[in-house]
Nucleic acid binder design. Structure first.
Length: 570
RNA sequence: CGGGGCGUAGCUCAGCCUGGUAGAGCACACGGUUCGGGACCGUGUGGUCGGAGGUUCAAAUCCUCUCGCCCCGACCA
């Protein structure tokens, strides 16, 4: 491909709205173009990268036994009503009506359609298992799209769905998908980690996320050298250290202490001459149907996802100040578990393990000191609520945990029978019994993976594509294409590389050397071939790898072969 | 949805506070010099100042409404 005949326009300035490096570089390198918030055109070179990833994904999915199909992205409301998600999904689901006022949505995912597709054909255990996938555009009406391809509203996703007659069969498919995902991300040259994850509103039991490690990642990942890894939302820890010894004796009943103007945990602890772990932190939440009081130790934070899962509710948020006062009968910042009535009390096990504590008195400017969990209040539910912290003991080996940032590029779930039950996707077993199929689903964000590759592979000059995702493997630059020797040499090399099967872009533009060099660095071709006048007259061209930018003069006759060698290292 | 900010040329922005001829750099076109790391000189093309209403002799500028976009907090591939 000749640059002069291609469609590649680089930008000198960063777009004003691009914040993260992958967004800036993809935009400046002429790979993506924003059309609306979270909605992008994949320009020709950008599409080449996406297409390359798509091929890798297809190869690995096919190798793992999955079969490709494509489902509609406009889906009828009826199916979503059948699964219950028409109500449950919320505003992220883009709902549309046709001219007859019939309701549809733009698919954010495809469990409903695939379940319908399978149930109308598969009726016997003999036809199972089935694993179907597609690569298609999805739409999620995100509250806040940002970071270019990393969090778009419209995005390309590979989504696969498997159907089974037994948990063992699902397990087999799940492991095959895990393996396929590792192969895909390994082939892309990404540094990533697979972690245990929350299943969110897709539902299901076991779930893993594939996180590309990058400081700009939106997710926090807890990791241990022993191999344990989990999304912070999900992470559990080993038993944390007991609270420090309580100063003085444990009173026979809680005492109310006047604590004017001190409502935060650090302030209260200092005022009472206690330490933060001596306090019980009381947070009041509001769900879709009730108020709930959550208790964690003073030095811990409530993990809202864990709380949400423990309650089995779909919406959860911190209660507003007025509601707090209504529920606790006291001012915000002075809530406590003692004497609360008419609300569910959910406590972290670490709280119930505290021999004695201080907490709010449900009365403005007062705290209770000497509260004994179990004696002075009882929890309706005791469940892990605490957010893991750096240095907490690993739940598997006890070593201190680390927390790192990651970009979620893939997510696999064991769905179980949530959709097959709701949508009557049944099969007959060998005994003639009717059973819901057991399902799994496996997502992988294509644009996000490409963006993640850029986050991990760039320098101050531009993108350094891993070869498998590079829009072109090599670039031939003719410095002065009008010079006969240069022009002929460049043409010759361009032809040789093409014949050798190298994906090569020929920069034949009438631009200054600096412009071409800067564009080459920005777009990030793994291998660069520069044909200049002086070198060419001596029968030489200059080869370099984008990665190290070390220039090597090479005889013209050897150049094409040498490019292929360099590509092996790129 | 709550809080903050921005919409002026293809791109990055100035002008707005204090109303009076719409600007710069880059890009683009032409001429010349230059040419291995984003050249220089000259000439030129290009803008209903996001949109609608209002105030005013006069609005990019002041007011109201609206649309779009971005940033900070709760969702997800």
């Amino acid at each position: 491909m000749r640059w002069s005949r291609y469609f590649l326009y680089t930008l000198r300035d960063n777009p004003a709205d691009a914040e993260v490096i992958s967004h800036q570089l993809l935009a400046r390198a002429g790979m993506i173009d924003k059309l609306a918030a979270g909605i992008y055109t994949y320009l020709p070179p950008g599409w080449r990268s996406i297409d390359k990833l798509m091929r890798i994904v297809r190869e690995e999915m096919n190798a793992a036994g999955a079969v490709e199909l494509v489902m509609p992205c406009i889906q009828p409301a009826e199916l979503w009503q059948e699964s219950g998600r028409w109500q449950a999904y919320g505003k992220e689901l883009l709902r549309i009506k046709d001219r007859h006022e019939r309701e549809f949505c733009f698919a954010p995912t495809a469990e409903e359609v695939i379940t319908d597709t399978v149930r109308r054909r598969v009726t016997s255990y003999r036809q199972l298992p089935v694993n179907l996938y597609q690569v298609h555009t999805k739409f999620r009406d995100e509250i806040r799209p940002r970071f270019g391809l990393m969090r778009g509203r419209e995005f390309l996703m590979k989504d696969a769905y498997s159907f089974h007659a037994s948990a063992a069969s699902l397990e087999e498919a799940y492991r095959a998908m895990e393996h396929a995902y590792r192969r895909i991300f390994d082939r892309c040259g990404l540094r990533y980690t697979a972690v245990e994850a929350d299943t969110g509103n897709i539902g299901g039991s076991e779930s893993h996320e594939y996180m590309v490690l990058a400081d700009t990642g939106e997710d926090a990942v807890v990791a241990c050298a022993c191999g344990y890894g989990a999304n912070l939302e999900k992470a559990t820890t080993g038993r944390i250290a007991e609270m420090p010894a309580w100063p003085g004796q444990i009173p026979s009943a809680p005492e109310a202490v006047h604590t004017p103007g001190t409502s935060s945990v650090p302030d209260v602890a200092a005022f009472l001459h206690l330490q933060e772990p001596h306090l019980i932190k009381t947070m009041i939440f509001e769900t879709d149907q009730e108020f709930v009081v959550a208790l964690v130790r003073g030095d811990d934070e409530v993990n809202e996802i864990k709380l949400k899962n423990a309650l089995g509710c779909t919406h959860l948020q911190l209660a507003a100040e007025a509601k707090v006062e209504q529920v606790s009968g006291g001012a915000m910042g002075y809530s406590g578990p003692v004497g609360l009535r008419g609300v569910r009390l959910v406590a972290d096990p670490e709280v119930m393990r505290m021999p004695v504590a201080a907490t709010g008195a449900n009365r403005g400017d007062y705290h209770l000191v000497g509260v004994v969990p179990g004696r002075d209040f009882a929890a309706d539910l005791v469940v892990d609520l605490r957010q893991a912290r750096v240095g907490d003991p690993c739940p598997r080996c006890g070593s201190p945990l680390e927390i790192r940032r990651g970009i979620e590029v893939g997510h696999i779930f064991k769905l179980g029978t949530k959709y097959s039950k709701a949508m009557e996707c049944h099969y007959l077993d060998a005994q003639g019994g009717v059973n819901p199929m057991i399902m799994g689903c496996y997502g992988l964000g294509l644009g996000r993976t490409v963006a993640a590759a850029v986050e991990q592979n760039h320098d101050e000059h531009g993108i350094i594509w891993p070869r498998p995702l590079a829009p072109f493997e090599a670039e031939v630059i003719a410095l002065n294409p009008d010079d006969a020797t240069v022009g002929q040499t460049a043409e010759r090399l361009y032809g040789e590389l093409q014949s050798a099967g190298v994906e090569v872009l020929f920069d034949d533009r009438d631009e200054r050397a600096g412009v071409k060099f800067n564009d080459a660095d920005l777009v990030g071709f793994p291998v660069r071939v520069v044909v200049g006048k002086k070198n060419a007259e001596q029968g030489l061209v200059e080869l370099s790898l984008r990665r190290d930018r070390v220039k090597t003069p090479t005889p013209i006759a050897d150049a094409a072969a040498k490019v292929r060698e360099l590509l092996e290292q790129a």
